[in-house]
Design a protein around this nucleic acid. Sequence first.
DNA 1: GCGCCGATTGGCT
DNA 2: GCCAATCGGCGCC
Length: 201
Amino acid sequence: MSPHLRAAKVLPVSFFARPVETVAVELLGTVMVSGVRGAVTAGRIVETEAYLGRDDPASHGYQLRRNARNQSLYGPPGTWYVYLSYGMHWCANLVCQVDGIGAAILVRALEPLEGLERMRKRRGGVEDRLLASGPGRLCQALGVTRTLDGSSMPRSGVSVRAGQLRPDERVEVTRRIGISKAAEWPLRFTVAGSEWVSKGR
DNA sequence: GCGCCGATTGGCT
DNA sequence: GCCAATCGGCGCC
């Protein structure tokens, strides 16, 4: 890990113990770091999506539904909730707000920062713009799988470190992507104009 | 127990 | 633009 990145503090639990939309916005510009020593991969978060939990029809925590998959969604703020999407892609969420609501933020895209060669190898040599521009893609690039589910910082193998948007960057809010229920809710947040944001179809 | 759907992606038409 | 891959949850028989 570069000295610069090592100097950035891992986000504390208090960062996540706030309204999910606030956290989703403030996660933009922070850095998701995976692995240790010579095997670090890291990327700057440029796209997030909020899922409100209990009262959000699109959330895995809708009506406080519980099953074997989503146990960690009801853990304390800062817990990783990682699940398998469409039977083949892992998606990483960070639990927020207060215990038991089921609110979480899906990390949807990263701007690759460190370990580019390792990411390219994991991603099978796709063009760099596609390395981590999607929730499934970024998990593959960072080697995130079920083993991360239920863990939390700073002990977990993946952490998020402090980072800011640049002065020329602003946050854009849009409807959510890839879902059918409550998709129109303005809960997707991106760094406006970033080439690393997922494209949708 | 069975079949359908999904917070996705990559490949082909 | 369309579709398959692939698996867990859930509704329904």
